[in-house]
Design a protein around this nucleic acid. Structure first.
Length: 434
RNA sequence: CGGGGCGUAGUAUACCGGUAGUACAUCUGCUUUGGGAGCAGACAGACCGAGUUCGAUUCUCGGCGCCCCGACCA
């Protein structure tokens, strides 16, 4: 149960020091389950419609999710970078996407203008990053020997959605992991595309959504004939998909027709309809952007040819929200181990000196063993502590009280199943390290 | 962007053209301590603007904001 830390500076925390508080009720007008629970538990704060801040506990989960994605992207050769959110319209004009008719979700702004200023130039707030990255790569790709290359980032995207909805699932400002592949040819691109698809499935599995998530055949939009989405079955989803359970794949309703069915060798009667959340999307870009922005390389014959590109996106915030939607229960959230804010919620009941001493002892042992632990050392009644603990949803709750002290063992309750074990400190420690 | 609903305290609500009330939450104190306990006290509210009126939270108009359905969705 011990695991790698993903750049987190704190492995443990006393709940009495945590500045966020839980709330009994969700705010007025908040109907989506993910927003209700995340706000009640103090994971996020809503600034305005479609704009959410991450508070300490929510940020820990977000960072865990980012860490999982980062590991899987690195494993397939991805190299992380960080592009800018302020963007130069020039590259977008070259691809034809600066126009509001083509893309109506731009947030646009401009540099200072006026007597003391000479510019007043327009700027865009990053909507996506195909254009700037393609332009940037011209500096680094010139020969077939430079290919393939894979670059990715976790960066804020701004999209002026006509209607933000579903809590944190569709917001106007959100972090996106976007990876772009640069290959010599279609064959090289295809090979990587399949590896990326595998990596995506690993990400969703590690986030606890494996059995609910299907690679889904979808429209390629304006880029190509096809693309693949990763859809997590959930009643709160915005998409409708048709699932073939045997082959673990699905078809998005938008391309659900006889032609698609025959191309995929599927029969209508083997499919079941479900609502689903799009947690990831990968798609071929071909040479659309490389041609428009002049990203070419010399092949072995010395010919100048455009780079073949692909794009691969996951929204960590949406993934976080999806985990809440899919895995929570009536008491609160239920975090899978890999993305939980902490591994253990150590709960001390009562203020008796011997109980305090025992709880501190366990806390110290867990901290020394580098187990991520949230220690509820607050002076509160048991019922409130349990309610908070259920709401926050840390995978394992370890209770220390007069009752457990008398037994010489603490009480270990799994959040997901409710399974309870009574373990001594040494039994707990060995359980955690196996 | 089309359609619908709604703005009174953190939440849920009440009353009213004349000093805005209750419950829960929150905070303080005391008691309590294995599933959101009790008692006492405290904090806290009419989205904004204009108009009508002696007087507007209430009526009228405008704006802003929020939610839902649809459309859209690299």
């Amino acid at each position: 149960m011990l695991r790698t830390l993903f750049g987190l500076t704190m492995t443990h925390m006393r709940q009495s020091q945590l500045f966020t508080k839980t709330r009994r009720e969700a705010p007025q007008g908040e109907v989506s389950k993910n927003a209700q629970l995340l706000i009640r538990a103090g994971f996020v704060h809503k600034e305005m419609a479609g704009v959410y801040s991450y508070l300490p506990l929510g940020l820990r989960v977000l960072n865990k999710i980012i860490g999982v994605i980062r590991e899987e992207m690195n494993a397939i050769g991805g190299q992380e970078l960080l592009l800018t959110t302020l963007q130069d319209p020039e590259v977008w004009k070259k691809s034809g996407r600066w126009s509001d008719e083509v893309n109506d979700t731009w947030f646009k702004t401009h540099l200072h203008s006026g007597e003391q200023f000479h510019s007043g130039s327009e700027l865009g707030l990053a909507n996506t990053h195909e254009e700037p990255l393609t332009a940037l790569m011209r500096n680094h790709i010139s020969s077939y020997k430079d290919l393939p290359k894979y670059a990715y980032q976790f960066q804020t995207k701004f999209r002026n959605e006509l209607r933000a909805k579903s809590g944190i699932m569709r917001s106007r400002e959100f972090i996106m992991k976007d990876l772009y592949s640069f290959s010599r040819d279609e064959e090289g691109f295809r090979e990587f595309y399949e590896r990326a698809a595998e990596a995506y499935l690993k990400v969703f599995k590690r986030a606890g959504l494996g059995e609910h998530t299907y690679r889904t055949f979808a429209s390629g939009g304006s880029f190509s004939k096809f693309s693949d989405e990763f859809q997590t079955v959930c009643g709160a989803g915005e998409d409708t998909i048709y699932i073939n359970e045997g082959r673990r794949l699905a078809i998005n309703k938008e391309v659900y027709n006889d032609q698609t069915l025959s191309e995929l060798g599927l029969r209508k009667e083997d499919l079941r309809e479900e609502r689903a959340i799009e947690v990831g999307n990968i798609f071929p870009l071909g040479t659309k952007y490389s041609a428009a922005l002049g990203l070419t390389y010399k092949n072995e014959a010395g010919e100048e040819v455009p780079v073949v590109m692909g794009s691969y996106g996951i929204g960590p915030g949406r993934l976080l929200g999806t985990v809440v939607e899919v895995l929570s229960d009536e008491k609160g959230m239920v975090w899978p181990e890999e993305v939980a804010p902490f591994s253990i919620h150590l709960v001390q009941l009562g203020e008796d000196e011997d109980v305090k001493k025992e709880a501190e002892e366990i806390y110290r042992s867990l901290v020394e063993a580098r187990v991520e632990v949230l220690f509820d050392d607050r002076t509160m009644r048991a019922g409130e502590k349990f309610a908070d603990s259920d709401l926050i949803g840390i995978p394992l709750r370890v209770v220390v009280s007069q009752k457990t002290l008398a037994e010489g063992k603490c009480e270990c309750v799994e959040r997901a199943s409710g399974t309870t074990h009574h373990r001594s400190l040494s039994e707990l420690m060995s359980h955690l390290t196996t």
